[in-house]
Amino acid sequence: MAYAYLFKYIIIGDTGVGKSCLLLQFTDKRFQPVHDLTIGVEFGARMITIDGKQIKLQIWDTAGQESFRSITRSYYRGAAGALLVYDITRRDTFNHLTTWLEDARQHSNSNMVIMLIGNKSDLESRREVKKEEGEAFAREHGLIFMETSAKTASNVEEAFINTAKEIYEKIQEGVFDINNEANGIKIGPQHATTNSTLSGSQGGQQAGGGCC
């Protein structure tokens, strides 16, 4: 299917926080109480619409165990967005956020949009990390923040889509160089024909339907 842009996402965070479940909920709209362990990396894809444009999300879902960091580090390359996930019922997964963030900042391009996610918000009775703590951490490090539940689907759409909106805004502001694929953004076939005139006015829209 034709799309205007393709954004590469990476999902990171400690093992067992629900990264694969968030992805499954987002791409398939279902929840698996016991998900297979992720070894290395798995993939998801979905089309979303922002500002009337079709955007394809290509999502890299990584293994969370510390030992795999040296491998997953190479997957930051070319990511436009990252979902950094912790589990609100396990404080240690929140405590590790700083090292995840350092890793992400060091190995990605500086414009990568990072969304902090406190997952498992349905397990209120087992909560160990207050929502305010997540908000404070996000504010301090300049991240967007949301609490989600992969189980009930609460905020899952929003988390993925708001990240894309932020990336999209950065493109509009000219922060992202969309012609450099290392930024994790690819111009889709829908755009390709008008690509050469992209810098100028977009008046002479030809093929490609209602985009731009």
Binding site: T15, V34, D36, Q65
Partner: peptide, 16 residues
């Protein structure tokens, strides 16, 4: 302990 804790978590995710 995290490693032992992790074993527990992962066993439940092995051939579920």
């Amino acid at each position: 302990e995290a490693s032992l804790e992790l074993i527990k978590l992962d066993i439940s995710r092995t051939f579920p």
